[in-house]
Simulated assay, not measured.
Amino acid sequence: MNSDRINEDSIEFKLGKILCNNKLTISTAESCTGGMVAAKLISYPGISASFLEGAITYSNEAKMKRLGVRKETLDAYGAVSEETAREMAEGVAKASSSNTSIATTGIAGPGGGTDEKPVGLVYIAVHVNNKTIIEKCNFSGNREEIRISATNHALKMLKDELENQNYK
């Protein structure tokens, strides 16, 4: 089997096809996944017609400066929150003028967790045509496994929302 061949059953292939076939644009804002969402999307041949940009905004300062996340949001809810995920997804879509976006923010571990916000807690936001959906996820495993789980879940969330909006 040719190692350069993409798996047509993969989530990134299916999502890339939907984005490109429907002339949709996408941008990403990632914290805990550190660029993995963008990397998966970019594996689809021809994605340059749809993928506009990806931002890895690990620090609160980057979230505010690059994505327009409000300091008040970060102070009130923290970086790992539904509210911050929403502002990240909406902010990167606005900054890049894309009609879809994905944002991830969470605690991949092994440290950094608390009783209130344990390791594995990830908020994922997908933004499609001015509609934002956020899911609170609790993944298990080591740091890499949590990041992979969050990446795959984010891609599936966007694919499902696009299909719900009748994009095929």
Rank of each mutant, 00 (worst) to 15 (best):
D75W: 01
Y77E: 00
Y77C: 02
V80H: 01
S81G: 07
S81I: 01
E83H: 14
E83G: 02
E83C: 02
T84G: 01
R86H: 08
E87R: 03
E87W: 00
M88F: 06
G91M: 03
G91N: 06
G91T: 00
G91K: 10
V92H: 05
V92Y: 02
A93H: 10
A95L: 04
S96N: 11
S97K: 15
S97Y: 08
S98Q: 13
S98M: 03
N99W: 06
S101E: 05
S101F: 07
I102W: 10
I102V: 10
I102C: 13
A103N: 02
T104H: 10
T105M: 02
T105K: 03
A108T: 05
G109Y: 00
P110N: 03
G111W: 00
G111Y: 05
G112K: 12
G112E: 06
G113Q: 12
G113L: 08
G113P: 10
T114F: 03
T114Q: 06
T114H: 01
D115Y: 00
E116K: 12
P118L: 01
G120I: 10
L121D: 05
L121P: 09
Y123A: 05
Y123H: 12
I124P: 05
A125W: 07
V126S: 07
V126C: 14
V126Y: 08
H127T: 04
V128E: 11
V128C: 13
N129H: 11
N129S: 15
I133E: 15
I133D: 14
I134F: 05
I134N: 07
E135S: 11
E135T: 13
K136N: 12
C137F: 08
C137D: 13
N138D: 09
N138C: 13
N138W: 13
F139P: 13
S140I: 10
S140F: 14
G141M: 14
N142G: 14
R143D: 11
E144R: 15
E144Y: 14
